[in-house]
Amino acid sequence: MSQVTHYLRPSTVQAACEALQANPNAKLVAGGQSLLPTLRLGLALFDEIIDLQGLTGPQSAWAEPVAKGAQSATFLNQIKRNIQAHTLTIGAMATHAQIHASAAVQSFCPMLTQLAGGIGDQQVRNMGTIGGSIVNHDPAACWPAGLLACGGVVNIASATQTRHADVDDFFTGLFSTALEPDEMVVSVTLNKPLTATYLKFDQPASRFALVGLAVAQHAHHFRVAITGLGHGAIRWHEAEDALTQATHITHVTLAHALKTLHLDPERASGDLHASAVYRVHIAKVLCERAVQKLF
């Protein structure tokens, strides 16, 4: 027998936040692609579902919501590019398929398009959302690495306030984020890298990343982010520094800068698919391949 006895479908972010504040045992459901299997397997316990599907606009992978008129401004699956600020804001309820098909995302940073298209399978991408993915922070999820490589902020709302968390502070560890129990993610605002790529070493059965690594070149520095090591997504600062300090940006000099780098296996954990040592090895290889691909 199920323990879920209550259901709410709010039509505003404020209503969703108030419901969350009123019942700490409630669970926000975005696409539900990670939550439903855990519910089915008895791994999640909650008594109320707050369904966020009511916060989305037109639902179609190929019909990108257009911000015309005030009403559409409340849609949580909007994708908006700010040309002046060199940022892209993706609504928390934007699905992976929608992001993959978005011309705005493609022109902003093709790495994000590619990353979105590689998550799960098409059926999962049609339901699963970027907000749900980052809040769940599965240690093998792709989005956290993409966000950390771009840099930017996670826009968060609660019943009483809104705030912006730097993505570097948002992912705090395995299945954990800086989100408070009464808060929800509204959108993410990402900085535009000069160039970036994401390489994923698939775990072939689940299509999650056994290890995934994103390299992004920004105006004055590089950002390198790794997912799949086991403790959640992390930045690899040693690699970032080595790449940033390389005297010339060619794949030869950058690859040379990476040669002597060490990624401590302590930062990874092993499971039946791969040991910690193997995972850090794959991360290092992916980093070299990413640099070769970019330059």
């Binding site: 259901y7 696409g31 539900g32 579902i49 369904d51 179609s60 098409q122 059926q123 999962v124 339901m127």
Partner: peptide, 15 residues
């Protein structure tokens, strides 16, 4: 659902 393929075991009916 609206012409897009989804896995019906993995969405709530109410969604």
């Amino acid at each position: 659902v609206d012409g897009q393929a989804i896995k019906s075991c993995n969405v709530l009916a109410l969604q």
